[in-house]
Design a protein around this nucleic acid. Sequence first.
DNA 1: ACATCAAATGTAATCGATTACATGCTAACT
DNA 2: AGTTAGCATGTAATCGATTACATTTGATGT
Lengths: 350, 350
Amino acid sequence: MSKRTRVIRQKTAKIADVARLAGVSVATVSRTLARPEVVIEETRTRVLAAVRDTGYTPNISARNLRVRKTMVVLVAVPDIANPFFAEVLQGIDDTLSAAGYGLIIANLAGSPEKEARYVDLVCAGQADGVLLLCGHVMRSPDRDLRDAGVPLVAACEYIPRESFPQVTINNVDTAREAVRHLVELGHTSIAYLSGPNFNILEQQRLEGYRQALHDAGIATDASLILPGDFTFRTGVEAGRTLLALKPASRPTALFAANDEMAIGLIKTARAAGLQIPDDLSVVGFDGIAYADYCEPTLTTIVQPRRDLGATAAAELIALMTNGRTEPQKDIKLPAMLMLRDSTRPPRRSG
Amino acid sequence: MSKRTRVIRQKTAKIADVARLAGVSVATVSRTLARPEVVIEETRTRVLAAVRDTGYTPNISARNLRVRKTMVVLVAVPDIANPFFAEVLQGIDDTLSAAGYGLIIANLAGSPEKEARYVDLVCAGQADGVLLLCGHVMRSPDRDLRDAGVPLVAACEYIPRESFPQVTINNVDTAREAVRHLVELGHTSIAYLSGPNFNILEQQRLEGYRQALHDAGIATDASLILPGDFTFRTGVEAGRTLLALKPASRPTALFAANDEMAIGLIKTARAAGLQIPDDLSVVGFDGIAYADYCEPTLTTIVQPRRDLGATAAAELIALMTNGRTEPQKDIKLPAMLMLRDSTRPPRRSG
DNA sequence: ACATCAAATGTAATCGATTACATGCTAACT
DNA sequence: AGTTAGCATGTAATCGATTACATTTGATGT
């Protein structure tokens, strides 16, 4: 074997090098690359050959400086380890990267310092737009994202009283549908496992739960509303709370504000000998992949995760390119009740 | 309510504006911000006040152009929806963003076009370094990442015959430990559920399986090596294969090359009436969060996911700042066998 | 009082691309 | 032939910050 020879990378070629090699001016090189149709055939081939020979790639900082763009968008996500957001991100990534945008993922992780850093980043002109999946407009101690002068779009979590486009599902109606499903199966004692109560999604899903009960003429029982915070752990805790009730007063069904809590609750209930769905029907919300892996498979509201991301991204692109600022565009995507094995009529149905 | 008045954001202040307002030169402003100790107290306060008044933030494209840095690193991940990588990413994000770096997440998703786009991005000087979680050095049709002139670091998946730092766990020894656990419980018929066979992780884990059997004096039985590709779906398929065997010739234990497959297999086996772990012990690999949620909870190899990410990021930072190029730094992090409920001695142990 | 030096600040070149405007050239029309 | 239109290309300003080098200022030593 001969030693592998590798060309040492000298300072990367710049446009002037290409121009010199092709025997034209830098302007011509730039034009050839940007709008090939305006230079004549012969020049074009000479320039393109020179580009190839030198291995030239435009320096993006220089271009950005000149045209005042970055071709980067920042995506603010509450928690990157949450599988729901991971799938939304895929949709965003597909759309954005196909349009030539890079994306910076701002994993807020509940840290105001991180949030502030990202706000400053955007204010410093490091991004052409921002996608908010986090339910609020990001802030730093002395700046607000709205003043950064870049387009914003929110998705997944609706942010009230804002004038930028938002892409969400109708949480109220969908939650209502989930609970109606339980009602139609014959359940009359239906618990609700909530999210953190400041959260807008939680508020909307709770409202849907209330409406469905009201529709069915069932009184809301405050003791059937269990506190949670969207994590598996609080699902487990809610399960214990439920088990502590004596069987007669135990609800026969439960609607959880998200899948992870539903799964935690089911696990606890089963470990204590409760049959799911026979003793307790459970409906989740989100439609994460795991809802179809667990046992029993979880009846849940499937959100169009990829599509939420893709639609929001497309909206942002429109805003960044047209600068169009259609006031208060509020896009609702359809979510679907997916019937699986965790629900059935109550044992002794009316 | 009076109409909310918002200051219209005119073109963001530039350094010259600050200089004018403070009555100094642009050089002084720049210095005040970069090395406050070199300007005298009085100037410094004047400049800082002007910075505050104008809301000045440096234009990063301009700075990057000048200092030839981007303060961005690109992270190549095979699949952003995979929970394992999501947690590695958290570790990366923590370390990198604390050091002031932004990160661009390159979600390869098996698409050569995307991969090529990202390679070009890096070659165009859009990143100061690259973190490879994807098991290979990225390529575009006409370029190779190694020629981009930026530091590389690999993590999670070892890339053979490369001279950049790599941060991984010892897959061979760890897989061996997992299988030894089964052996020590008394199992002698142990199946292996594999990953895709071109994958380096798969090769190493298979090797560990082989070694453990060899250590125990058990002959490797090719019919006990089931094909898989790291997805839940192939776990389900492998479960069916297993069920098709007549009970006498069925293995009493199985080692899966990752958790998702193990979980799929368990689900299928249980649905068919097999008791886990009584009829079949199962060990997984990775330690994803769900391994502790499923039923039964999964005995598995827990990888230090956050730490893998954080260590690799720290290594890359060292490389980017010192330019130090310590040859072939090969960091192995400890992984741990986590005993849970999916393993136990075989029914009729020797 | 003058030379010398250090500290503080200013001047202007520089990073690499884009693009408005200027120029040169050819072809077409009167 | 002379004018003009229009195309292809070149010249040079520009984006906004950093920083080597130049200049000013004041203090110190003799």
